[in-house]
C-alpha cells in the first residue's frame, strides 16, 4: 500500500514535469522587412479552398494576410479556390459564382469536403488520406519551414496581354538549381484580386462589400498544366514553358488580373517553386 503511494507520487511529479508552461506566448520580431536573402529560397503557394457561404472562411483569408506580412511573407503566394455546391453555389442572396472547372476538379482529386481548408505547396499529398489538407492555423508554420529551404528551381516569367483577342500569353524560363528526377508540370493560373462581392462572415451575417482576394478565375492549360520535364533534369539545365489563355471573360476586371505560376511534381503533387506577375 505504501509502495503504491510512493509510486504514484513519483509518477505524478514526473508527469507534471513533462509539460511546457509558456510565459511569453508571442515571438518577438514578427514584423515584415528584414534583409533580402543571398541565395534563392523556395517560395510557397497556399491554396485556400473557400466559398462565399462559408462563415469560417474569412478567418482563413485573414490568416493569409497575416502570413504575407511576416518576414518571409514575400515568398508566400496565395490563391482562393471557390468550391462545393453547398458553400460556393449561387443563390438569391449570394448571386456570384466563383467556381471554376479547375476548382471542381481539385475538389474531387484533393478530397475536399469541409471548408475552410487549404494546402501549402501540396506537401504531404497521398491519394488515400487527407494529410495534404491543413487547417489555416497550420499554414504559418508550414510556410515558415518551407520558405527557409533552398530553391530547386527558379522561375523567370514573361507575361503579355493581347488586347485584340483578349488573351494572356506566358513564357517562362525555369533554371534548374538542383538536379531533379521526376515528372514535372508547369501550371499557370489566372487570378483576380480585390473582387467586391457578398461573403458570409464568422457571426453568420452577410457582408455585401467583402473584398475577395486572389480569386482563381482560370488556367492556361486545363487543371494540371503542361509537362516540362520527364526523367532527370540536371543542375544548370533550363526548362521552358509557353502557353496562351482562352479569351478572358468580360466580367473580370482586367487591371486586377495576375498570372500565378508554379512548377510541381506530377506524381507527388509537391509544388517546388512559385511566382506571380501582374497582367500588364
Amino acid at each position: 500500500m505504501k509502495n503504491a503511494l510512493y509510486i504514484t507520487t513519483f509518477l505524478s511529479v514526473f508527469a507534471l514535469a513533462s509539460c511546457d508552461i509558456v510565459d511569453e506566448p508571442l515571438k518577438d520580431g514578427i514584423g515584415g522587412g528584414g534583409p533580402a536573402p543571398t541565395e534563392t529560397l523556395r517560395s510557397v503557394l497556399i491554396e485556400d479552398f473557400t466559398g462565399h457561404k462559408c462563415n469560417n472562411c474569412p478567418k482563413a483569408a485573414d490568416e493569409i494576410d497575416l502570413i504575407q506580412g511576416l518576414e518571409f511573407g514575400n515568398r508566400v503566394f496565395a490563391v482562393g479556390l471557390h468550391v462545393t455546391q453547398f458553400f460556393a453555389g449561387p443563390d438569391a442572396s449570394y448571386p456570384e459564382d466563383f467556381r471554376t472547372p479547375i476548382g471542381n476538379e481539385y475538389e474531387t482529386f484533393f478530397n475536399i469536403s469541409a471548408l475552410p481548408t487549404g494546402m501549402v505547396s501540396r506537401t504531404d499529398y497521398t491519394s488515400t488520406s487527407s494529410g495534404h489538407l491543413k487547417n489555416y492555423s497550420a499554414w504559418a508554420s508550414e510556410a515558415f519551414a518551407l520558405t527557409a529551404e533552398l530553391a530547386k528551381f527558379e522561375i523567370l516569367p514573361n507575361v503579355t496581354y493581347n488586347a485584340v483577342d483578349r488573351t494572356i500569353s506566358v513564357t517562362a524560363q525555369i533554371p534548374v538549381l538542383e538536379e531533379y528526377t521526376g515528372n514535372l508540370n508547369f501550371m499557370v493560373m489566372i487570378t483576380e484580386n480585390d473582387i467586391v462581392a457578398p461573403q458570409k462572415m464568422p457571426d453568420n451575417s452577410k457582408n455585401s462589400n467583402y473584398v475577395h482576394k486572389h480569386v482563381l478565375r482560370g488556367g492556361l492549360d486545363g487543371s494540371w498544366g503542361k509537362v516540362v520535364n520527364s526523367g532527370t533534369a540536371l543542375e544548370g539545365d533550363t526548362l521552358l514553358y509557353s502557353g496562351v489563355s482562352a479569351p478572358i471573360d468580360s466580367t473580370w476586371n482586367k487591371d486586377n488580373l495576375y498570372a500565378l505560376m508554379f512548377i510541381y511534381d506530377a506524381d507527388s503533387q509537391e509544388i517546388w517553386q512559385v511566382t506571380e506577375e501582374h497582367v500588364p
Binding site: L16, C19, D20, I21, L26, K27, I30, E71, A140
Partner: peptide, 18 residues
Amino acid sequence: SKYEAANSPIYNLPENVG
C-alpha cells in the same frame, strides 16, 4: 501528456502539454 514538435514564426508554442 502529449508531445508535438512546433515551428511557428508567430508563437512560442509548448511542445509538451500535460
